[in-house]
Protein backbone atom coordinates (compact mmCIF):
# COMPACT_ATOMS: atom_id res chain seq x y z
CA UNK A 1 0.00 0.00 0.00
CA UNK A 2 3.04 2.21 -0.38
CA UNK A 3 1.64 3.65 -3.58
CA UNK A 4 -1.71 5.26 -2.83
CA UNK A 5 -2.90 6.15 -6.31
CA UNK A 6 -2.02 2.73 -7.62
CA UNK A 7 -4.01 1.20 -4.78
CA UNK A 8 -7.00 3.41 -5.54
CA UNK A 9 -6.97 2.61 -9.26
CA UNK A 10 -6.85 -1.09 -8.53
CA UNK A 11 -9.83 -0.76 -6.19
CA UNK A 12 -11.83 1.13 -8.81
CA UNK A 13 -11.06 -1.35 -11.59
CA UNK A 14 -12.03 -4.23 -9.29
CA UNK A 15 -15.35 -2.64 -8.46
CA UNK A 16 -16.14 -1.84 -12.09
CA UNK A 17 -15.37 -5.40 -13.10
CA UNK A 18 -17.79 -6.73 -10.48
CA UNK A 19 -20.47 -4.27 -11.48
CA UNK A 20 -20.21 -5.24 -15.15
CA UNK A 21 -20.33 -8.90 -14.25
CA UNK A 22 -23.45 -8.33 -12.19
CA UNK A 23 -25.06 -6.32 -14.95
CA UNK A 24 -24.34 -9.05 -17.49
CA UNK A 25 -26.21 -11.67 -15.50
CA UNK A 26 -29.06 -9.22 -14.83
CA UNK A 27 -29.44 -9.11 -18.60
CA UNK A 28 -29.22 -12.90 -18.92
CA UNK A 29 -31.93 -13.39 -16.32
CA UNK A 30 -34.18 -10.85 -18.02
CA UNK A 31 -34.50 -13.45 -20.81
CA UNK A 32 -34.83 -16.57 -18.69
CA UNK A 33 -36.07 -17.52 -15.26
CA UNK A 34 -33.45 -20.11 -14.42
CA UNK A 35 -30.36 -21.88 -15.78
CA UNK A 36 -31.78 -24.94 -17.51
CA UNK A 37 -35.18 -26.41 -16.83
CA UNK A 38 -35.80 -27.60 -13.28
CA UNK A 39 -32.20 -27.12 -12.17
CA UNK A 40 -33.33 -24.93 -9.31
CA UNK A 41 -30.80 -22.24 -10.19
CA UNK A 42 -33.09 -19.25 -10.47
CA UNK A 43 -31.93 -15.66 -10.59
CA UNK A 44 -31.18 -15.16 -6.90
CA UNK A 45 -29.82 -18.66 -6.38
CA UNK A 46 -27.42 -17.90 -9.19
CA UNK A 47 -26.49 -14.55 -7.66
CA UNK A 48 -25.58 -16.40 -4.47
CA UNK A 49 -23.39 -18.57 -6.65
CA UNK A 50 -21.87 -15.53 -8.36
CA UNK A 51 -21.21 -13.82 -5.01
CA UNK A 52 -19.50 -16.98 -3.76
CA UNK A 53 -17.29 -16.96 -6.84
CA UNK A 54 -16.31 -13.38 -6.10
CA UNK A 55 -15.61 -14.09 -2.46
CA UNK A 56 -13.29 -16.98 -3.25
CA UNK A 57 -11.64 -15.13 -6.13
CA UNK A 58 -11.01 -12.13 -3.96
CA UNK A 59 -9.39 -14.34 -1.31
CA UNK A 60 -7.19 -15.85 -4.01
CA UNK A 61 -6.35 -12.52 -5.60
CA UNK A 62 -5.57 -10.92 -2.27
CA UNK A 63 -3.43 -13.63 -0.75
CA UNK A 64 -2.28 -16.08 -3.42
CA UNK A 65 -2.15 -14.47 -6.82
CA UNK A 66 0.51 -11.83 -6.06
CA UNK A 67 2.67 -14.49 -4.41
CA UNK A 68 2.32 -17.05 -7.17
CA UNK A 69 3.22 -14.40 -9.69
CA UNK A 70 6.14 -13.28 -7.57
CA UNK A 71 7.24 -16.90 -7.22
CA UNK A 72 7.54 -17.28 -11.01
CA UNK A 73 9.51 -14.07 -11.09
CA UNK A 74 11.80 -15.19 -8.24
CA UNK A 75 12.59 -18.34 -10.19
CA UNK A 76 13.36 -16.47 -13.39
CA UNK A 77 15.60 -13.88 -11.73
CA UNK A 78 17.26 -16.32 -9.37
CA UNK A 79 16.10 -14.40 -6.33
CA UNK A 80 14.47 -17.54 -5.00
CA UNK A 81 17.97 -18.13 -3.60
CA UNK A 82 17.14 -15.99 -0.62
CA UNK A 83 13.89 -17.77 0.14
CA UNK A 84 15.77 -21.07 0.11
CA UNK A 85 18.29 -19.76 2.64
CA UNK A 86 15.72 -18.93 5.31
CA UNK A 87 15.16 -21.38 8.15
CA UNK A 88 11.45 -21.60 7.48
CA UNK A 89 9.30 -23.71 5.19
CA UNK A 90 9.95 -22.33 1.70
CA UNK A 91 6.40 -22.95 0.47
CA UNK A 92 4.99 -21.09 3.44
CA UNK A 93 7.41 -18.23 2.96
CA UNK A 94 6.73 -17.66 -0.71
CA UNK A 95 2.98 -18.24 -0.38
CA UNK A 96 2.30 -15.52 2.11
CA UNK A 97 4.91 -12.89 1.36
CA UNK A 98 2.68 -10.32 -0.24
CA UNK A 99 -0.90 -9.25 0.25
CA UNK A 100 -2.77 -7.34 -2.43
CA UNK A 101 -5.32 -5.52 -0.29
CA UNK A 102 -7.02 -3.78 -3.20
CA UNK A 103 -8.38 -7.14 -4.42
CA UNK A 104 -10.41 -7.41 -1.25
CA UNK A 105 -12.86 -4.84 -2.68
CA UNK A 106 -14.23 -7.62 -4.90
CA UNK A 107 -14.91 -9.60 -1.77
CA UNK A 108 -16.93 -6.75 -0.26
CA UNK A 109 -18.94 -6.48 -3.47
CA UNK A 110 -19.53 -10.23 -3.24
CA UNK A 111 -20.67 -9.92 0.34
CA UNK A 112 -23.16 -7.20 -0.63
CA UNK A 113 -24.61 -9.23 -3.51
CA UNK A 114 -24.72 -12.30 -1.27
CA UNK A 115 -26.70 -10.59 1.48
CA UNK A 116 -29.09 -8.99 -0.99
CA UNK A 117 -29.73 -12.29 -2.81
CA UNK A 118 -30.24 -14.21 0.41
CA UNK A 119 -32.77 -11.64 1.59
CA UNK A 120 -34.61 -12.10 -1.72
CA UNK A 121 -34.51 -15.88 -1.32
CA UNK A 122 -35.95 -15.58 2.18
CA UNK A 123 -39.26 -14.74 0.51
CA UNK A 124 -38.90 -17.43 -2.17
CA UNK A 125 -42.12 -19.25 -2.98
CA UNK A 126 -43.15 -21.93 -2.44
CA UNK A 127 -40.21 -22.79 -0.11
CA UNK A 128 -38.63 -19.71 1.49
CA UNK A 129 -34.97 -20.06 2.35
CA UNK A 130 -34.18 -20.48 6.04
CA UNK A 131 -30.56 -20.31 7.12
CA UNK A 132 -29.37 -22.23 10.15
CA UNK A 133 -26.14 -21.28 11.98
CA UNK A 134 -24.70 -24.66 10.90
CA UNK A 135 -25.27 -23.79 7.24
CA UNK A 136 -23.38 -20.54 7.68
CA UNK A 137 -20.47 -22.24 9.44
CA UNK A 138 -20.32 -24.92 6.75
CA UNK A 139 -20.47 -22.24 4.06
CA UNK A 140 -17.48 -20.42 5.51
CA UNK A 141 -15.62 -23.69 5.97
CA UNK A 142 -16.18 -24.70 2.34
CA UNK A 143 -15.18 -21.24 1.15
CA UNK A 144 -11.86 -22.02 2.83
CA UNK A 145 -11.69 -25.43 1.14
CA UNK A 146 -12.43 -23.83 -2.22
CA UNK A 147 -9.68 -21.27 -1.69
CA UNK A 148 -7.28 -24.08 -0.69
CA UNK A 149 -8.01 -26.00 -3.90
CA UNK A 150 -7.45 -22.93 -6.06
CA UNK A 151 -4.28 -22.12 -4.11
CA UNK A 152 -2.99 -25.64 -4.84
CA UNK A 153 -3.69 -25.32 -8.55
CA UNK A 154 -2.03 -21.93 -8.62
CA UNK A 155 1.10 -22.87 -6.70
CA UNK A 156 1.52 -25.98 -8.89
CA UNK A 157 1.25 -23.90 -12.03
CA UNK A 158 3.73 -21.39 -10.65
CA UNK A 159 6.16 -24.14 -9.63
CA UNK A 160 6.35 -25.35 -13.22
CA UNK A 161 8.32 -22.18 -13.99
CA UNK A 162 11.30 -23.98 -12.45
CA UNK A 163 11.28 -26.44 -15.33
CA UNK A 164 10.03 -24.14 -18.03
CA UNK A 165 12.35 -21.26 -17.17
CA UNK A 166 9.60 -18.83 -17.79
CA UNK A 167 5.90 -19.29 -17.42
CA UNK A 168 4.15 -16.22 -18.64
CA UNK A 169 1.09 -18.21 -19.55
CA UNK A 170 0.43 -18.72 -15.86
CA UNK A 171 -2.42 -16.24 -15.90
CA UNK A 172 -3.85 -17.70 -19.10
CA UNK A 173 -3.83 -21.22 -17.75
CA UNK A 174 -5.36 -19.96 -14.59
CA UNK A 175 -8.12 -18.22 -16.50
CA UNK A 176 -8.88 -21.27 -18.69
CA UNK A 177 -9.12 -23.61 -15.74
CA UNK A 178 -11.06 -21.44 -13.32
CA UNK A 179 -13.46 -20.44 -16.08
CA UNK A 180 -15.06 -23.85 -15.66
CA UNK A 181 -15.63 -23.32 -11.96
CA UNK A 182 -17.83 -20.29 -12.48
CA UNK A 183 -21.08 -22.01 -13.33
CA UNK A 184 -23.27 -24.52 -11.54
CA UNK A 185 -22.35 -28.14 -12.23
CA UNK A 186 -25.73 -28.79 -13.81
CA UNK A 187 -24.71 -27.10 -17.04
CA UNK A 188 -22.23 -29.89 -17.70
CA UNK A 189 -24.95 -32.54 -17.41
CA UNK A 190 -25.47 -32.86 -21.15
CA UNK A 191 -23.63 -34.73 -23.90
CA UNK A 192 -20.02 -33.50 -24.26
CA UNK A 193 -20.25 -31.64 -20.98
CA UNK A 194 -19.72 -34.92 -19.20
CA UNK A 195 -15.99 -35.36 -19.92
CA UNK A 196 -15.47 -31.77 -18.77
CA UNK A 197 -17.42 -32.52 -15.63
CA UNK A 198 -15.24 -35.57 -14.89
CA UNK A 199 -12.01 -33.72 -15.67
CA UNK A 200 -12.77 -30.67 -13.54
CA UNK A 201 -14.24 -32.62 -10.67
CA UNK A 202 -11.91 -35.57 -10.27
CA UNK A 203 -8.63 -34.56 -11.92
CA UNK A 204 -8.39 -30.82 -11.34
CA UNK A 205 -11.21 -30.38 -8.84
CA UNK A 206 -12.04 -26.75 -9.59
CA UNK A 207 -15.72 -27.51 -10.11
CA UNK A 208 -16.32 -28.21 -6.44
CA UNK A 209 -14.67 -24.94 -5.41
CA UNK A 210 -17.71 -22.70 -5.76
CA UNK A 211 -20.38 -25.34 -6.28
CA UNK A 212 -20.20 -26.90 -2.84
CA UNK A 213 -20.46 -23.77 -0.64
CA UNK A 214 -22.94 -22.06 -2.98
CA UNK A 215 -25.13 -25.16 -3.06
CA UNK A 216 -25.11 -25.38 0.72
CA UNK A 217 -26.25 -21.82 1.07
CA UNK A 218 -28.62 -21.21 -1.83
CA UNK A 219 -30.14 -24.65 -1.54
CA UNK A 220 -31.46 -24.92 -5.11
CA UNK A 221 -34.65 -26.94 -5.07
CA UNK A 222 -34.13 -29.90 -7.34
CA UNK A 223 -30.72 -31.29 -6.69
CA UNK A 224 -31.23 -32.16 -3.09
CA UNK A 225 -30.30 -34.77 -0.55
CA UNK A 226 -29.30 -37.67 -2.77
CA UNK A 227 -25.93 -36.23 -3.65
CA UNK A 228 -25.56 -33.08 -1.60
CA UNK A 229 -23.62 -34.71 1.23
CA UNK A 230 -21.54 -37.12 -0.84
CA UNK A 231 -20.47 -34.06 -2.84
CA UNK A 232 -19.56 -32.18 0.34
CA UNK A 233 -17.55 -35.20 1.49
CA UNK A 234 -15.79 -35.38 -1.83
CA UNK A 235 -14.96 -31.68 -1.65
CA UNK A 236 -13.19 -32.30 1.63
CA UNK A 237 -11.23 -35.19 0.13
CA UNK A 238 -10.40 -33.11 -2.94
CA UNK A 239 -9.08 -30.29 -0.77
CA UNK A 240 -6.75 -32.64 1.10
CA UNK A 241 -5.52 -34.27 -2.09
CA UNK A 242 -4.96 -30.94 -3.85
CA UNK A 243 -2.85 -29.60 -1.00
CA UNK A 244 -0.88 -32.85 -0.83
CA UNK A 245 -0.22 -33.10 -4.56
CA UNK A 246 0.71 -29.42 -4.88
CA UNK A 247 3.17 -29.90 -2.02
CA UNK A 248 4.79 -32.80 -3.89
CA UNK A 249 5.01 -30.74 -7.07
CA UNK A 250 6.51 -27.84 -5.15
CA UNK A 251 9.15 -30.02 -3.49
CA UNK A 252 10.08 -31.72 -6.76
CA UNK A 253 10.37 -28.32 -8.42
CA UNK A 254 12.77 -27.01 -5.76
CA UNK A 255 15.06 -29.97 -6.34
CA UNK A 256 15.41 -28.88 -9.96
CA UNK A 257 15.96 -25.22 -9.18
CA UNK A 258 19.02 -23.89 -11.04
CA UNK A 259 19.32 -20.39 -9.67
CA UNK A 260 20.53 -17.76 -12.14
CA UNK A 261 23.79 -16.10 -13.03
CA UNK A 262 25.23 -13.60 -10.62
Amino acid sequence: MTFRVNFLIQCISSVSWSAMNYGFFEIVFSYTGSIGADSGWGKYEYFVFLATTWLINSLIQTFCMPNAQEFSELIRTGNLDFALLKPIDTQFLISFQKVEWSSLTNGFMGLGVLIYSLSQLASRSPTPLVLSPLTIVLYIFYLGCGAAILYSVMISLAATSIWLGRNQSLYNFWFYITNFSRYPMEIYARSWGLPLFVLFTFVIPVLVVVNVPARLLADPLQSQDTWKWPLAGFALFATGMSLFVSRLIFKAALRSYRSASS
Partner: peptide, 24 residues
Amino acid sequence: NRDNDYRRRFALVMGQKNQLWWDL
Protein backbone atom coordinates in the same frame (compact mmCIF):
# COMPACT_ATOMS: atom_id res chain seq x y z
CA ASN B 1 18.74 -31.09 2.51
CA ARG B 2 17.90 -27.57 3.63
CA ASP B 3 17.52 -28.38 7.31
CA ASN B 4 16.17 -25.46 9.25
CA ASP B 5 18.83 -26.15 11.88
CA TYR B 6 21.50 -25.68 9.24
CA ARG B 7 19.87 -22.62 7.70
CA ARG B 8 19.83 -20.89 11.05
CA ARG B 9 23.61 -21.20 11.31
CA PHE B 10 24.98 -19.75 8.10
CA ALA B 11 24.42 -16.81 5.80
CA LEU B 12 25.01 -16.01 2.14
CA VAL B 13 25.56 -12.49 0.89
CA MET B 14 25.53 -11.85 -2.84
CA GLY B 15 26.86 -8.54 -4.08
CA GLN B 16 24.80 -8.80 -7.24
CA LYS B 17 21.46 -9.58 -5.66
CA ASN B 18 19.57 -8.00 -2.85
CA GLN B 19 17.32 -9.67 -0.37
CA LEU B 20 15.99 -6.57 1.40
CA TRP B 21 12.57 -5.28 0.41
CA TRP B 22 13.13 -2.67 -2.21
CA ASP B 23 10.31 -0.29 -1.26
CA LEU B 24 10.54 -0.58 2.51
